[in-house]
Simulated scan of single mutants.
Amino acid sequence: MDKFEEVRNLYPGLKNQVYLDTPTSGLLSSNSYEAMKCKLDKSHFEGLSLNEYWNEWNHSDHVRKKVAEMINASDEEIFFGKDASDMINAFVANIDFPSGSNVIIPDISFPSTRNAWLNRECDGLKVRFVPNKARIVTTDEILSYIDEKTFAISICAVEPSTGYAYDLDLLSKVCSEKNIFLVIDTTQGLGLMCYDMEKTRIDVMISSTYKWMNNVFGLGIGYIRKELLQNLKPRHVGWTGIRDRKKDFSNLELTISETASRFETGGLNWIGLAGVEESIKTYLNLGKEDIQKYAMDMVQYLYDEMAEVKHFKITPWLPKENRSGIVYLEISDKVSITGEEFAQRGIRVHVSGNKVRIGLHFYNSFEDVKKLITILKNYN
Results as ranks from 00 to 15, higher is better:
117 W>S: 06
117 W>I: 08
118 L>G: 02
118 L>A: 05
118 L>I: 00
119 N>S: 13
120 R>K: 14
121 E>V: 14
123 D>H: 15
124 G>N: 07
124 G>I: 10
125 L>T: 05
126 K>R: 03
126 K>A: 08
127 V>L: 07
127 V>C: 06
127 V>H: 08
128 R>K: 14
128 R>S: 06
129 F>R: 13
130 V>P: 14
130 V>S: 09
131 P>R: 12
131 P>D: 10
132 N>K: 12
132 N>P: 13
133 K>Q: 15
133 K>H: 15
133 K>C: 12
134 A>F: 10
134 A>H: 14
134 A>S: 15
138 T>C: 09
138 T>I: 11
138 T>Y: 08
138 T>R: 07
139 T>I: 00
139 T>R: 04
140 D>L: 08
140 D>E: 13
141 E>Q: 09
141 E>T: 03
141 E>M: 01
142 I>K: 07
142 I>D: 02
143 L>S: 01
143 L>T: 04
144 S>Q: 11
145 Y>M: 10
145 Y>V: 03
146 I>Y: 00
147 D>V: 10
149 K>R: 14
149 K>Q: 14
149 K>E: 08
150 T>F: 06
151 F>R: 09
151 F>G: 01
151 F>C: 05
153 I>T: 08
153 I>D: 02
154 S>C: 11
154 S>T: 06
155 I>G: 09
155 I>C: 05
155 I>L: 06
156 C>H: 02
156 C>W: 09
157 A>I: 04
158 V>T: 08
161 S>P: 12
161 S>C: 09
161 S>A: 11
161 S>K: 15
162 T>M: 03
162 T>A: 03
164 Y>S: 05
165 A>Y: 15
166 Y>F: 15
166 Y>I: 07
166 Y>E: 12
167 D>T: 12
167 D>I: 13
168 L>Q: 13
168 L>V: 14
169 D>F: 14
169 D>V: 15
171 L>T: 02
171 L>M: 10
172 S>P: 09
172 S>N: 11
172 S>Y: 10
175 C>Y: 04
176 S>K: 12
176 S>W: 00
176 S>I: 02
176 S>F: 09
176 S>M: 11
177 E>N: 03
178 K>M: 06
180 I>F: 05
180 I>C: 01
180 I>R: 07
180 I>H: 02
180 I>G: 01
181 F>W: 05
181 F>R: 02
181 F>T: 00
182 L>K: 09
182 L>E: 04
183 V>W: 05
183 V>A: 00
185 D>W: 06
186 T>L: 06
186 T>V: 14
188 Q>H: 15
188 Q>V: 03
189 G>F: 00
190 L>A: 11
191 G>R: 06
192 L>A: 07
192 L>G: 05
193 M>H: 05
193 M>A: 11
193 M>D: 00
193 M>R: 11
194 C>R: 07
194 C>E: 11
195 Y>Q: 02
195 Y>N: 03
195 Y>D: 01
198 E>N: 13
199 K>V: 12
199 K>S: 08
201 R>H: 11
201 R>S: 07
